[in-house]
């Protein structure tokens, strides 16, 4: 297993991670869901993030799950993200199951746990769908329209702006450490030495990065001042103007209506066939 980790580490270069991250963060607005009204999508998400907790009918949950899978496919989420998600779910539930076997449970404890998995999947897929579909501006405007504080909305879009710069700088400093450093000559027990070397560098990189970012933040905040940010914060009119482009269109209503009808049909179905799957 350690071998596998090592091989994976060798193959994953910072450059690739960077690309993957950027791809995930920025390649979104072209999808169907990305064009929908962010406020509607956020409310839609809120529904699918909350209701599964209160539903124990497996048929309904499965129906929701199918719907979520469809929307996930529609939003063209990076397979890597889905993989990470599945891994997380499986390992969490898996260990719980094994341990409960140890404490005297049986195969029957798998069933409630499967339900839990189903719930968690619906919730996670809903959030993946929505948050990877919305591009940063629309997301921050959507949140802002729903009453989230402006500072958060601004930070969000600033985050999208600054991420590539930060990654680039991180990469450069990491490279400096490696170019001038010395990797342990022996890997040590279970590759401990090598792992320790890399983790140590990873931590150390943040020392220069903190100082450089501090310099950067100073100019940024100063520039914000000259660009009227403070003025905007103190004028509610500005927010209204900024959000005035958000209008519910036909496709938004259609999507909302379809979701409502679908979920509305699920419930009677679930009541009639509560044990459709198991």
């Amino acid at each position: 297993m350690v071998e596998a980790v090592k091989r994976a580490l060798n193959r994953i270069s910072v450059e690739q991670i960077k690309l993957e991250l950027l791809g995930t963060a920025y390649n979104s607005s072209s999808t169907f869901l990305g064009r929908l009204d962010p406020r509607m999508l956020l409310i839609w998400y809120l529904f699918f993030a909350v209701t599964p907790w209160f539903v124990y009918n497996r048929t309904i949950l499965l129906g929701m799950f199918v719907f979520m899978v469809v929307t996930t496919v529609l939003s063209r989420v990076s397979p890597y993200i889905v993989f990470i998600l599945c891994l997380g779910l499986v390992s969490q539930i898996g260990w719980m199951f094994l341990l409960s076997l140890f404490f005297g449970g049986g195969a029957e404890s798998l069933l409630p746990m499967l339900t839990l998995t189903l719930k968690l999947s619906v919730i996670s897929l809903a959030s993946i769908t929505v948050f990877s579909s919305l591009d940063p501006e629309r997301l921050s405007d959507g949140l802002s329209a729903l009453g989230v504080p402006d500072a958060f909305a601004f930070s969000l879009s600033y985050g999208y702006r600054i991420l590539p710069t930060l990654l680039e700088e991180f990469h450069q400093i990491l490279l400096s450490f490696r170019l001038r450093g010395q990797r342990p000559l022996k890997h040590g027990f279970l590759y401990m030495r090598t792992a320790a070397y890399y983790l140590r560098i990873l931590v150390l990189v943040f020392y220069p990065l903190m100082l450089n970012t501090a310099k950067r933040s100073r100019t940024t905040v100063e520039a914000l001042e000259t660009r009227g940010y403070t003025y905007a914060v103190n004028n509610p009119q500005v927010k209204k103007l900024r959000l005035s482009y958000l209008v519910m269109q036909r496709r938004d209503w259609l999507f909302a209506a379809f979701s409502a009808v679908y979920v509305g049909l699920l419930f009677p179905l679930g009541t009639v066939f509560p044990n459709l799957i198991y």
Binding site: W53, Y56, W95, M96, L99, S100, L101, F102, F103, G104, G105, G106, E108, S109, P112, M113, T115, L116, K119, L120
Partner: peptide
Amino acid sequence: KVWVGVEELEAVKGLAESIVII
């Protein structure tokens, strides 16, 4: 959270303990 998410937690033997352990 698990308490809330799993129906009839008590009914499943050992689940509560295992969660606490984990």
